[in-house]
Every structure is written in structure tokens, then in C-alpha cells.
């Protein structure tokens, strides 16, 4: 029975939270409002004029082929890199959660690309993808396969970036899946074994569905990350060849800081936020319904 008014720490609490709250308002909440405000004007930075156009900016963006190309590229990048990345990470997680010696070493090694500098890693992969002398082409030449200029071929550039993303993104996804696998009680596996479920059958019938929340977490965070990719595109392809890797994150950058269409870029960043949110919501709905179905089965 505490006397409520005396235990309230209102004044002290606001003092403790103030620095973080001021930071949150200045660098996260206010910018959202400012970005929306800017998107309602047609700000010509070089001319110095700023007429109000309301949602006209959005109409302009939605009828802009370049923006749709970029949105399509971002979705292509996500479709190419996320499911593959998840499948590889899950397979590796199964491997590193076995009863074997020295797995800590391998877990550490597999995480290294994820903590490496994006620019340094991009420079490495420029070499890996070089025609003739690059690591891939030098290797495939031993088998008599013709050289491919991966980053300058419109058909290959995007798959090349996605493949590299699977390589850099393995560590965190693997760690999350390993934690999910270790959280399944051994009794569940023992019960399944008694029912005759072993090997692949047990994996699909028991392990896979019990990983439901883990799949959801990895899928949503990986999709959000994929839709915002910037550094490898800037360093390796600058959106080329012929716009084949001009993803939304890079498109917004050039719109704002190369062409100085700040209002257009602000509107595009809002649309990207909308698509990202919609993708997360959709994945959440689909996987939640599926999880409920598993529970009933």
C-alpha cells in the first residue's frame, strides 16, 4: 500500500529522459513532419522559389517512369536477395547448432562480412565481378566458360548485387535463426522421433513451423533493409548500367543531391516509407495467419 503521490518521480524522470527525448524529436519525429511539409511545395533550390503545390508533387512522382523503374528495381533486389538469404542463413544455422566442436569459431567467421565496411566490401566485390581477371571469371575460365562483365551487363548487374547482399547479410540472419532453433525444447524433437519423424520430415513437420516468429522477424527486418539499400549501388554501379540498378534509395539521393529536386525527393522518400510499411504489414498478416493455421493443425 504505497501512498501514490509521494512515490511519483515525475520531475526526476523527465530530467533523465530529456536528452533522449529531445534527440528523438529533433532527429526522428520533427523530420517526418518537415519532410511531408517539403513534399507539398515545389522547391526549386537553384531558382530559390517555393510555390505550394499540395499533393501535386506526389502526382508528378507517380507519373514518373524513372521512379517506377527504381521502385521495380528495389522490389527485384528484395525478391532476389531476401528469400535466398533467409534459406542460406537457416541452413547454416542448422549446421552451427549441431553437437560439434569448434562451432563458435565458424559462427564468428560467418559474421565477419556483416561488420565490415560497406565501401571496402563493395571495392572487394568490384574485383570479384571484374571481367577476365576477376575472382569469378578467373575461376570459371578454368572450366572454359566465357567471361561476363557482371556489373556492366544490364541482365547481370542486379543479380550480382543481390548475391553480394546474401554474402554480407548472412551473419545476423544466421544468429537469429540459431537462437530460434535453440529455443525449441529438446522434448519436442524427442516426441517427434517417437512418432517416427526423422531427418527432413521432422525438419518440415516440426522445426520449420516452430520457427514461425523467427521467420517473421528475419523476413520483415531483411525486407526493410533491402528496400533501403544504398552504399553498394553508390560504390559499385551508380544505378547503372542503363538504370538497371537504380534502386529507390539511390534514386532519392540523386533526385535530392544531384538534380536538387528536394520536394520530389521528399515525396519519394514518403512513398518508400509507405511501400516498406505495407510490405512489413503484409508479411505480418500472412505469416500470422499461417502460424494460426499451424496451431490448429
Amino acid at each position: 500500500m504505497r501512498p501514490r503521490p509521494q512515490t511519483r518521480d515525475d520531475r526526476a524522470a523527465w530530467a533523465f529522459v530529456a536528452p533522449a527525448l529531445v534527440h528523438l524529436v529533433l532527429f526522428a519525429l520533427a523530420p517526418i513532419v518537415v519532410a511531408f511539409g517539403v513534399s507539398l511545395f515545389d522547391w526549386k533550390v537553384l531558382k530559390g522559389t517555393m510555390p505550394f503545390v499540395g499533393l501535386g508533387t506526389y502526382a508528378g512522382v507517380l507519373s514518373d517512369e524513372g521512379f517506377w523503374n527504381a521502385m521495380g528495381n528495389s522490389l527485384e533486389f528484395a525478391f532476389l536477395s531476401v528469400p535466398t538469404g533467409m534459406a542460406v542463413a537457416l541452413a547454416v544455422a542448422v549446421l552451427v547448432t549441431q553437437q560439434l566442436r569448434g562451432l563458435g569459431f565458424f559462427r564468428t567467421v560467418y559474421y565477419v562480412p556483416a561488420v565490415s565496411s560497406g565501401v571496402a566490401v563493395s571495392m572487394l566485390w568490384i574485383y570479384v565481378y571484374l571481367p577476365e581477371s576477376g575472382l569469378i571469371n578467373a575461376t570459371t575460365r578454368l572450366f572454359g566458360i566465357a567471361s561476363v562483365d557482371f556489373l556492366n551487363d544490364p541482365a547481370w548487374a542486379m543479380p550480382a548485387l543481390a548475391f553480394m547482399a546474401v554474402w554480407t547479410g548472412l551473419g545476423p540472419k544466421m544468429v537469429v535463426y540459431a537462437a530460434g532453433l535453440l529455443a525449441i525444447p529438446p522434448a519436442v524433437h524427442e516426441a517427434a522421433a517417437l512418432d517416427g519423424a526423422v531427418g527432413w520430415r521432422r525438419f518440415w513437420a516440426v522445426t520449420w513451423p516452430l520457427l514461425g516468429p523467427t521467420h517473421l522477424f528475419v523476413l520483415v527486418t531483411a525486407t526493410i533493409g533491402a528496400l533501403q539499400v544504398f552504399t553498394p549501388v553508390y560504390t559499385m554501379t551508380r544505378g547503372g548500367p542503363m538504370g538497371a540498378t537504380d534502386v529507390v534509395g539511390y534514386h532519392i539521393y540523386t533526385e535530392a543531391w544531384v538534380r536538387f529536386h528536394v520536394s520530389t525527393a521528399a515525396a519519394q522518400s514518403f512513398l518508400l516509407l509507405l511501400v516498406t510499411g505495407a510490405a512489413a504489414w503484409l508479411q505480418f498478416r500472412l505469416l500470422r495467419d499461417q502460424a494460426a493455421g499451424w496451431g490448429a493443425a
Binding site: L24, A28, L29, V34, V262, S269, F270
Partner: peptide, 23 residues
């Protein structure tokens, strides 16, 4: 206030960059 912090986890990204630059 805690809900505000959690909300901002979801809205980070390219949207804030232009306004923070302008500020």
C-alpha cells in the same frame, strides 16, 4: 513516451535525411 520511441524504430530511414540536412 516509450511508445514514441518504439514508433520511431519503424519510421527511420531515408525520410529523415533530407529534413535533418536542411535543419
Amino acid at each position: 513516451v516509450f511508445a514514441l520511441f518504439l514508433l520511431s524504430l519503424m519510421i527511420a530511414g531515408p525520410v529523415t535525411q533530407i529534413p535533418v540536412f536542411l535543419m
